[in-house]
Amino acid sequence: MNITLHVWRQKSAREPGKLVTYKRGDVSPDMSFLEMIDVLNEELAAKGEEPIAFAHDCREGICGSCSMMIDGMPHGPQDLTTTCQLHMRTFKDGAEITVEPWRAAAFPVVKDLIVDREAFDRIIQQGGFVSVNTGNAQDANAIPISKEAADKAFEAAACIGCGACVAACPNASAMLFVSAKVAQMAELPQGQPERYRRAKKMVDQHDAEGFGACRNHYECEAACPKGISVRYIAQLNRDYLKASVAVAEHAGRSSGPG
């Protein structure tokens, strides 16, 4: 099949970028989108041109690296699919496809289609974990967890942190990401002791990173390759409200001895 690509090319964060057009013939419909770019990149390299920089890792839809806006939709037009799992048969022969990096102040472009998603890591560092003392592993099933709670937690934990929610959001908000990372703990007994403090600190970090505020457009849910539901955002709203108005701040343990 024949396609025309308009790809965002940008040498570095400091230099301005632009869309560059590449006409492709002889594209196999069985190729994944990334494989199609791989072939293009081989040709570019053979001609002595700079290949298109894009992030990828597992190529099986679970690492969340292959961030790119394809025809105005994160990871392309197919539901519940990352770019690596998107196949060229999804497009019509002769299609013109625009490929851009995620656009958000909190996700600066590194090069071409690669953005820096460390803002997500800093949000996780604020509480996306359960604090435990190290030691022997607990007996399995020492803490009873209902099937329903486990399923709900797992649904939230399916988030791969790819950033599609931010990319799709008209306000570049990361609320779906934050809500999933808070909910995966909030649904489990192990997550309860730090539940409200976690919600507060992670949301405050989200805001500090320069992500926008959620205005309930639900583009994120439609874009999420893992189908994370916006009901976790409602749950986060409740937890954040409680954390803000009904939970007293406390100094916690001092970090040093004495």
């Binding site: 102040a105 570049a172 505020a213 583009e219």
Partner: peptide
């Protein structure tokens, strides 16, 4: 703040769920 959160706009963005009233 939401305008600040996306200083560079997409050349092409396709709405998947939201509508003109919300936007």
């Amino acid at each position: 703040l939401n305008k600040q959160a996306r200083p560079v706009r997409y050349r092409k963005q396709t709405s998947m769920h939201t509508n003109v009233f919300a936007r």
